[in-house]
Design a protein around this nucleic acid. Structure first.
Lengths: 240, 240
DNA sequence: CGTCGCCTTGAGGAACTTCAATCAGGGTGG
DNA sequence: CCACCCTGATTGAAGTTCCTCAAGGCGACG
């Protein structure tokens, strides 16, 4: 399979100490890369997937559902992200993953990835690093959801996304496409869509952001960071 | 070092496929096991620890702070838990760990653990399994904090703790010591201590629990589970 | 007996939710 | 080009949940 896995491999390469051989073996685990339309499920909550997905372009979201329909996102997956790392350990997924935009998605064999891990300690360490990186974000989101009110939550997500959408030569993107509607923002921030709407108004009228037809512009980065208590260190999953 | 690491090793052994040699090498990474008083910090948020801790007995808590003092627990560590697995990857801790009761704590060299991981793929896989297990809990807590109200949150924590405190021969403990005061429960559930108090009253008067001087008794397991939408699968970090 | 930590209670207010209606923009069929 | 429709944003109103502040109460312990 010779799909263009660069976004995924580049991510691993820059964050972890991997040899070309490691990357080649990882690439061999990929059996398929395809375009996926918006609003499709890549994995189902409760399933036992034998394939893992990496996002090559587009946005996907990891979410958990309650039986009455309440929903909470627990991750957003952007270019380069591996989606279902939990599936590497034991089979059952506690969350679902679905596309938020049209995506290009690479599909990996779970079994093959586990084999590579066993043969190559540096790959195992990289996967541990990925899991720990997710851990850090989840920990920060816990604090966010447990202890910070609506405006701080949204501000924090915007800071995080601004950094994750930055080009390699910038620290944070001052403007980027935010392909989430207010209901989805609510499921991210643990809020109703109505309250998201009102909170966005507040952020706008405070001069911190602009948001027009899915284009988010940060007009006052410094104040946004301060409001959110955003400290970007939790995003840095550096070398082991 | 010949401390009695059984609680920690037993945990690894039962959940992951580890040989006696693996366990022996892990045990060799332990340089020290000691008693630690209540309310002491095992690791500091923002530090770069070179030691990891395993809880042999007692309770510890992992928490994140904001500069104005708001606090959120992101994990409770009980007998057998490894506390700072995040430190295995890159150095900086995004959280602190402190004892909630007097504890017996084993201390491991980070460097030595990383060495064992490199030599022994099954150990690497076990650590990945531990990280993924934390991931699952954090994901569930995200849903809890984002989408479930106070009574459901507390009920859920009680369900979780009841299972984690169960003896090997039972599915869940119907009664156990809960060494958290109402302020700490608040920092766990993202609530004020006053609201914790009132919510506990509600749970009591609904006949779901009893709570007297740190002894929690679950008087209606089934309803408590239903209220919390508790599905214990997220606690099962089984074999790879 | 006094003190200290923690639980309990009351009162008032802030944050957030639900329900319901309206508005705005883009896409489609005629 | 226009009428229609659909999705999502916006607004209002009313109610619930949760918070802060403040004051007692209660048991352990010196």
């Amino acid at each position: 399979m010779h799909a263009d896995l660069r976004p995924f491999l580049y991510r691993l390469q820059t964050r972890f100490e991997l040899q070309d051989d490691d990357l080649a073996e990882l690439a061999d685990c990929c059996t398929d890369a395809s375009s996926v339309a918006k609003d499709l499920e890549l994995s189902f909550q409760g399933s036992q997937p034998d394939r893992l997905h990496a996002i090559l372009s587009g946005w996907a979201g990891r979410h958990t559902l309650l039986s009455d329909g309440r929903r909470q996102f627990s991750a957003l997956h952007l270019r380069g992200d591996l989606c279902e790392i939990d599936a590497l350990c034991d089979g059952v997924l506690e969350f679902g993953v679905s596309t938020l935009t049209a995506c290009r998605v690479a599909s990996f064999s779970r079994r093959a990835l586990l084999d590579v891990m066993t043969r190559r300690p540096s790959v195992a360490r990289a996967f541990l690093g990925l899991a720990i990186a997710e851990n850090k974000v989840l920990t920060r989101w816990n604090l966010l959801l447990g202890r910070q009110p609506a405006a701080e939550r949204l501000a924090h997500f915007f800071c995080e996304l601004s950094m994750r959408n930055a080009e390699p030569d910038e620290r944070h993107a001052s403007s980027f496409t935010l392909p989430l509607n207010q209901t989805e923002l609510g499921d991210l921030a643990g809020l109703s869509s109505v309250h998201v709407n009102r909170t966005l108004m507040d952020l706008r009228s405070a001069g911190l952001i602009q948001l027009r037809s899915s284009e988010l512009t940060i007009t006052n980065w410094k104040e946004l960071v301060a409001l959110a208590s955003f400290r970007p260190s939790y995003l840095a999953s550096s070398l082991v």
